[in-house]
Amino acid sequence: MMNRRDALKNLGLSLGYVIATPTILSMLQSCTAQPEKWTPLFFSEKQAYVLHNLVDLILPKTKDAPGAVDVNVPKFIDLYTSKTATDEEKEIYRTGLDAVIEELGIPNEDPITLETKKFDAILSKYLRLTKAERLAYVEQENIVFETLMKIRDQSVWAYRSSKEIGKNVLAYDPIPGQQKGCISLDKATGGKAWSL
């Protein structure tokens, strides 16, 4: 039996410290084609449905940029987790997603459907917090909070690392030229962050 405290600590590890190696980047680029029907490698169909809807709300499509679903972030998270996570990390992730599903109250029958406002409500409850509320969830070792934080962190990392966003949304210069010190971001890139 897994220790709950250790499981939550492991779940809370963020991808912010992971360096995008060529292997990981190639996995991300393999998720760029729009599949007819995505069949998850790691997640169950219900977990994939929840992940897809959460990611779509975390990074939605705008008039200026595609959304995370448009660049296949849920598919990448599934592929990345199936290829890189340990068995213990996979079990923690599944347990966390099952806790999210339980809190959402998703019925067991097929087809799986849930109104967008339910997904938005759970994201508001756990991710739009004051510092004190966030600390309270951390102290309580709330698995739903930790899972949603992980999904948000992975989504942002995968989104920013995608070829479409890197080349067409962020400031992109494959062969950087001269260094210009002490100028504003607006002057340097038109207000866009640099692509990695």
Rank of each mutant, 00 (worst) to 15 (best):
I175R: 10
T32I: 11
L59C: 11
L8H: 07
I183A: 04
A68E: 04
N3V: 01
Q154I: 01
L135V: 02
K192D: 12
G166W: 00
V169L: 11
P35I: 14
D110I: 14
M2L: 08
T32H: 13
L79E: 11
G12A: 09
E141S: 13
D186Y: 15
K125A: 01
T23E: 15
D78M: 04
L196D: 14
A136K: 15
Y172M: 02
I77W: 06
I112A: 04
F145G: 05
T116C: 00
S124D: 12
W38T: 06
L135K: 10
L28Y: 12
K9R: 06
N10G: 12
I112R: 07
A20M: 15
P40Y: 11
M149C: 00
E36S: 07
L170E: 05
T62H: 05
K150N: 05
L185M: 12
G16W: 14
L41E: 14
D70I: 06
S195L: 09
I122R: 02
K150Y: 05
A121D: 08
P107G: 00
I92W: 03
K192G: 12
A7D: 08
E88K: 03
A33S: 14
A99R: 08
W157K: 10
S155Q: 06
P22W: 11
Q179W: 12
D186A: 13
M149Q: 06
M2A: 04
V55M: 06
I112C: 07
V50F: 07
R4C: 01
Y93H: 06
N168P: 00
Q178D: 13
I92Y: 08
I77V: 13
S155I: 04
G166D: 01
D110S: 12
Q34C: 08
N3K: 01
T113G: 00
W194A: 15
D78P: 05
F42G: 07
S155V: 02
E146N: 14
D6W: 02
I165Q: 08
Y159C: 05
V18Q: 13
T81W: 06
I175K: 10
Y126N: 04
K117V: 10
A7Y: 00
D173G: 02
Y93F: 13
P60Q: 08
I143L: 03
Q34L: 13
R152V: 06
K192R: 15
C31D: 09
G166C: 06
G96P: 02
L11D: 04
N72S: 11
G12W: 03
K90H: 04
A20G: 13
K192N: 10
P174E: 14
K118M: 09
T32R: 15
T62F: 03
T116N: 06
T113I: 00
L123D: 01
T62Q: 12
Y93C: 03
V144K: 01
P174H: 10
K163Q: 04
Y80S: 08
V156S: 04
T147A: 04
L104R: 02
K180M: 12
K150E: 05
N142R: 07
T86C: 04
E115R: 08
L25P: 08
T86I: 07
S44K: 04
S26V: 10
K131C: 05
L123R: 02
T32N: 13
T147F: 02
